[in-house]
Simulated scan of single mutants.
Amino acid sequence: MNSLPMPAAWAGPLPSAAPPPDMALYQLPTGTYETRAALAVRGGSWRDKRHFAATAVLVRHPAGDLLIDAGFGSGVAGHVAMLPRFVRAPYRAGRTAREHLDAGGYDRGRLLGVLPTHSHWDHVSGLDSLPVPIWMNADERRYAAEDADGKVFRAVSPGHEIHEYRLDGPPYLGFPASYDVHGDGSVVVAAAGGHTTGSVVVFVTLPTGRRYAFIGDLTWQIDGISRRVERPWLLRRLADSDPELVRQGLLRVIALAGLMQVVPAHDRGAYDGIPPLPVLK
């Protein structure tokens, strides 16, 4: 299976955080698409069919809310058609993030924007029905504008304000630079380039003290953490802008796994325990 070496568990103190008492976290599942474990992680089986999640996460904070990723949009069929044929997969669309918010009677005026972990299609498709700012750092903004894998982003982003944040804060839990969204340690974005040049991990700390790491596509499935395995060689070549940086980020997250809930974007089970947004009756 060729597991990565076991990194030492994080031994330092956890960063201080003072989340407000009414802060909350919700998952907004927007659909799934199919692939095989053999294409997701080294040592995976061709017989093991995986249903990759396309899920947005709503972080509610009295200073303003954010969505981490946007999931599938209303135009997902057209977005899939923009992909090279060899990466298209059977998919099932559910409610869009906007439909989840509206069904819950959510005031979209509270939403500061969508913060994608990176700009690949399955993280930004839902921007087609969310007229809110897009939060990106300069490296990811450049990647999304120039790389072939930014095609769907370029289709859904016109008309959106781009809120460009700077990863100019201190190292955070082993990652080289950070950005504290609200200044209270409750939502911290960490530089984790490698899958794309400006991809990030979003760390969230709730008032209960529970911590989450939304790691985007450092690994597609939780097996990458629990079994310490990367993507297969060919998929690393095709999917990652810098596989070595992805490996470093994966090892950093493995070192943190005992201290927080690690959520790879496409593992449905990794969202367990995060409640759905209540629906108005």
Rank of each mutant, 00 (worst) to 15 (best):
Y179S: 14
L28E: 09
R210A: 15
L235H: 09
S16G: 15
V204K: 01
L67G: 09
D272L: 10
G75L: 06
G194H: 04
G194D: 07
K151A: 15
P243Q: 08
R95P: 02
D240T: 11
L115M: 12
L58F: 02
P232M: 06
A11Q: 11
A17I: 00
R60Q: 14
G104P: 07
Y212R: 04
H160S: 08
Q221M: 10
Y165V: 13
S199G: 11
W10N: 13
S74M: 08
L111Q: 07
T55W: 00
V59R: 03
A40T: 15
G150S: 07
F52V: 12
W46A: 15
P19T: 14
P84W: 05
S119R: 02
R210P: 05
F175K: 01
W135F: 11
A192V: 05
P170I: 05
M260L: 15
D240E: 12
L101F: 00
E230K: 10
W121A: 15
G258K: 04
E146F: 03
R98Q: 10
A8Y: 00
W233E: 14
W135H: 14
A155V: 11
R237Y: 10
S199C: 11
I254S: 02
L39G: 12
A155W: 01
R252H: 01
A148Y: 00
Q27C: 14
P176H: 03
L235E: 13
G94L: 00
P84C: 10
D168T: 14
E164I: 08
A144H: 01
G194K: 05
L127Q: 06
S129E: 15
P171M: 02
A192T: 06
V204S: 03
D242R: 09
G198P: 01
I222V: 12
P29V: 09
